[in-house]
Design a protein around this nucleic acid. Structure first.
Length: 424
RNA sequence: GUGGGCGUAGCUCAGUUGGUUAGAGCGCCAGGUUGUGGUCCUGGAGGCCGCGGGUUCGACCCCCGUCGCUCACCCCA
């Protein structure tokens, strides 16, 4: 079929009924964020390119080959947001809200990649940031929010991996030793990293290719290089998680794709997802990002979670129930020209019911069919008889008993009758 | 960026060694007499067979290109 336009590569239109799953997910996350004391933040979808480059690292995979960069008519260079954190931190630096500043967001994120299962050029993230405290209890709170949220989604096969990157000094010491180790084995690295290992040795830890994996396997481990303070911080985070009954596997080779992380880093892996795109969320602490973006020092921690992957993970775990009800309560069938329907539908909606109706003056049979398909519990029938008598016939669409399923009431008695029938 | 698979109705797919008006199921619409859905029956709408070029008397089918979808590597959500 020839169609003149279609959604760009790696992007998707989401229509009902799938979109109802999104509503449920976002609503659930909003509720949890609220419970945990986070307020909503909205920031622009694009920023000056430096906002992203400085934080995530100019030589990171995302910055070098995945960002959507463009110039506007004023020749300013902008980039479409590739992730959620940088914009929030920029807004924090700009507005200086009282600390700790705790914000949640839901946003599209853009990365120019070859699409595949669980990876898109536009994907969507739910996330939080808590800025202005170094307290490990905040790390615990942020991770707990994610964990409790996943539980509420019904996900069971999720593993939490944690690590500590230390602060700049201990990380610096580690990088020196790592660099030495890589230098020793430089010829054994994968092709790409033979050329680039020296520039940013931490990237090699992230490499999935066999040669690099082998070299890293007997290399130095980050947690062994933590200073006393970072080590204490990391212990406090692990203890806090353990106190909450949240199992965390320390993964000493876990480094994440963005350079801004310090101390705590973590990732949530959905084992139900068989493919390589099984990370449903991740995050960490970024204690120097505010300074990198021109502000005063303020420690922060956050996480982001991909909506598409959460939905894939739910599907993979066989979780089919939606988190929010998106079927109508009532369907109004009117064969008298539908002027009555217009008024009754509005009345009912003002009373709080979810009400659907048909258009184009379809036959009764046709309207009943639509009523059935709408999923509504009850149909309200208005034909010439009801119009004449000032009545409405209530028909239970979910009952097999034809006689018991139907009842006619006066228009003024409709609301009480519905309250009884629907129990709401 | 590299590599594999695939593009035929809204969806899932058939389509016989290239042969005339391209099919099915589901979905959609309308009927099955006098106001009733979920089952059943009948009928209907809906396809430049992704696009462009080539081979051929003739192409959905073969060849080339292109665009797109999809999966994997890599990276990540």
């Amino acid at each position: 079929m020839t169609s003149s336009f279609q959604a760009p590569i790696g992007t998707h239109d989401v229509l009902a009924p799938q979109s109802a799953l999104w509503e449920g997910l976002v609503a659930t996350f909003a509720e949890f964020a609220f419970r945990f004391g986070f307020t909503l933040i909205l920031t622009p979808m694009f920023e000056e390119i430096g906002v992203f480059n400085r934080g995530i690292g100019e030589d990171s995979e995302v910055a070098t080959k995945e960002m959507y960069v463009f110039q506007d008519r004023g020749e300013r260079t902008y980039a479409l947001r590739p992730e959620g954190t940088a914009s929030v931190v920029r807004a924090f630096v700009q507005h200086q809200p009282t600390v700790p500043y705790k914000a949640w967001y839901v946003t599209p994120a853009f990365r120019y990649e070859r699409p595949q299962a669980g990876r898109y050029r536009q994907h969507h993230q739910l996330g939080v940031e808590a800025i202005g405290t170094d307290d490990p209890a905040m790390d615990v709170e942020v991770i707990a929010l994610a964990w409790r949220f996943y539980q509420a989604l019904g996900l069971r096969r999720v593993r939490l991996l944690v690590n500590s990157m230390g602060h700049s000094e201990c990380r610096g010491r580690y990088v020196d030793v790592l660099r030495g180790h890589l230098d020793e084995h430089r010829d054994q690295l994968c092709e790409e990293h033979q050329a680039t290992w020296s520039h940013n040795p931490l990237r090699v830890l992230d490499c999935k290719r066999a040669p690099c994996v082998a070299v890293i396997a007997d290399g130095p481990l980050l947690p062994d290089f933590l200073c006393a303070e970072c080590s204490t911080h990391f212990s406090a985070v692990r203890k806090g998680l353990s106190d909450l009954g949240i199992d965390a596997d320390v993964e000493p080779r876990l480094v994440r794709g963005f350079d801004y992380y310090t101390r705590t880093t973590f990732e949530f892996v959905a084992d139900a997802l068989g493919n390589a795109q099984n990370a449903i969320g991740g995050g960490g602490r970024y204690d120097s990002l505010t300074e990198q973006l021109g502000g005063k020092r303020a420690g922060g921690i956050g996480f982001g979670s991909g909506i598409e992957r959460l939905l894939l993970a739910r599907e993979a775990e066989g979780l089919t129930t939606n988190l929010i009800n998106r079927t109508s309560d009532l369907f109004v069938v009117d064969t008298t020209g539908q002027d009555v329907a217009t008024v009754i539908v509005d009345d009912l909606r003002r009373s709080g019911y979810a009400v659907e109706r048909s258009f184009d003056a379809r036959s009764m049979k046709s309207q009943m069919k639509l009523a059935d398909r709408s999923g509504a519990t009850l149909a309200l029938l208005i034909g010439p008889q009801e119009l004449e008598a000032g009545q409405v016939t209530i028909r239970d669409l979910r009952s097999d008993d034809f006689a018991a399923a139907q009842q006619s009431v006066a228009r003024e008695d409709l609301l009480p009758a519905l309250r009884e029938r629907l129990n709401k």
